[in-house]
């Protein structure tokens, strides 16, 4: 986490020398690292980049969770209270309830894959942006 562009000691010295004109004096200074070379969490938390990441994450995972919980509970409630509907034969002796149950398997796979794709395309790159702001070089 301290893999900044320079070691903490150098960072402190830079700060000392530039104490009159703040951090923008050195254009290479990673803006979200404090004088000790540690990430400044409060600054990162209030940055636009972090808000964007949080929004992207929360706006995906909570509606998705609500969706699968609703669909699962619908299946459960139908099985418990709508005997006639789920007992309806669809083909052979396979009834609607079994098919709805198998549909839960399918929807689980779909949600899993769509989250993995979303995370790869929208979340991971944004996370990288913030991590590099904090001076973390990726291995």
């Amino acid at each position: 986490m301290t893999k900044a562009l320079w070691s903490p000691a150098e960072s402190r010295r830079t700060h000392h020398e530039n104490s009159g004109f703040a951090t923008f004096a050195d254009p290479d200074t990673p803006s979200y690292v404090d004088v000790d070379g540690k990430p400044d969490f409060e600054l990162i938390q209030s940055s636009a980049e972090f808000s964007l990441l949080r929004r992207r994450l929360v706006y995906f995972i909570f509606p998705m969770s609500a969706l699968f919980l609703c669909s699962y509970m619908t299946f459960v409630l139908l099985s418990a209270y709508a005997y006639d509907i789920v007992s309806k034969r669809v083909f052979g002796v396979v009834n609607l309830g079994i098919l709805l149950g198998l549909a839960q398997f399918v929807s689980t796979i779909i949600i899993t894959l769509s989250y993995a794709r979303y995370a790869r395309r929208k979340l991971d790159p944004q996370t990288q942006v913030i991590r590099s702001m904090a001076g973390i070089e990726e291995k």
Partner: peptide, 19 residues
């Protein structure tokens, strides 16, 4: 303790500070 709360949130979402 806003500092610690910010640290946890940033760390949870980006792993910054976890090494």
């Amino acid at each position: 303790n806003n500092r610690k709360a910010a640290e946890m949130e940033v760390r949870a979402f980006t792993a910054i500070g976890s090494g």
